[in-house]
């Protein structure tokens, strides 16, 4: 068991968890992920590493409640254990001194973006970060991102924090303002956001790195369920990625593959919520 040492709620559907996993922490680097499982019945879920502390032997993960497995994991408390915590998996981010780079994070994607941004800053890059969410209550880690960026642009879809709009708008402006100066872009968030960020940078020919989050079982190259299509053929996200050149990704294939188990996910959520309601009713002493 891997003990949960700290837990906080970042927004209505996102939890931060600090987990004791010294072996993983010893090797973890920005850009990698872990496979997490709640208990004997649980799914193996890939979660990107949001932070790590080698001295304390901990890994920080951000959990967004999107299905039964993540909702159930969200009910765990400090002191509870996770049945599986395997990693660090995937290739770490290639961190070099590129010059000026842009780090773009959408929603829960801000979590994995943070250690990458920090590593890029530490490597001597000038970092312009752009983070966004649907609204201010969903936005997190603004201060953390600010601490590792030379400049931070915040935006929300509804304008409740920062400027109103989506992250691709300030990204395009940045590329216009400083032509030829942005050496590389990292864009991490929902697939649809990464797709549009990649489309936005394409005309400027700025290499754009995305971190793909696909359906996985083992996370070690064994099942191939995570495969994505690049221009020159299929890749396994778990062992070839999770970072890829966003200009080469077949986004429509990726988006459609992410939906494959949607029906089953819905069924599991309904069943779980029903059970929770029953548990509550029993706890209240009702029928």
């Amino acid at each position: 068991m891997y003990e949960i040492l700290h837990k906080e709620r970042l927004n209505p559907t996102c939890h931060l968890m600090v987990v004791a996993a010294p072996g993983v922490a010893r090797k973890a680097r920005a850009g990698q992920f872990v496979i997490v499982r709640t208990d004997e019945y649980g799914e193996r879920i890939p979660l990107t590493i949001a932070d790590f502390d080698r001295d304390k032997g901990t890994i920080t993960i951000i959990l967004q409640e999107v299905g039964k497995s993540t909702m159930e994991m969200g009910t765990l408390r400090v002191g509870d254990g996770l049945a599986t915590f395997a990693g660090p998996l995937g290739h770490p981010t290639e961190v070099q001194q590129y010059g000026t780079v842009a780090c773009v994070g959408g929603g829960v994607g801000i979590a994995p973006l943070f250690p990458i941004t920090r590593a890029l800053k530490e490597a001597g890059n000038e970092v312009v970060s752009i983070i966004g969410a649907r609204s201010s209550d969903l936005l997190f880690w603004e201060e953390r991102m600010e601490s590792v960026s030379n400049r931070l642009i915040v935006c929300t879809d509804d304008g409740s924090r920062g400027r109103q709009g989506v992250v691709t708008e300030p990204l395009t402006e940045l590329l216009e303002e400083r032509p030829g100066q942005i050496a590389r872009v990292w864009a991490i968030g929902p697939a649809i956001m990464m797709k549009f960020a990649s489309l936005a940078t394409r005309p400027y020919k700025v290499p754009t790195i995305v971190s793909l989050n696909t359906i996985m079982v083992d996370g070690t190259g064994m099942c191939g369920g995570c495969r994505c299509l690049l221009e020159d053929g299929a890749r396994f996200v778990c062992v070839d990625g999770p970072e890829f050149d966003g200009h080469k990704v077949d986004w429509d294939n990726l988006l459609s593959r992410q939906q494959f188990y949607r029906e089953e996910e819905q069924q599991a959520v309904e069943r779980w919520q029903h059970r929770c309601q029953l548990d509550e009713a029993v706890a209240r002493g009702g029928s």
Binding site: M222, C223, G224, G225, R227, A234, D250, S256, R257, Q259
Partner: peptide, 12 residues
């Protein structure tokens, strides 16, 4: 067509 939904490895 190997990347269509519904195509998988026996391992998966």
């Amino acid at each position: 067509g190997v990347n269509l939904n519904g195509v998988m490895s026996a391992n998966e």
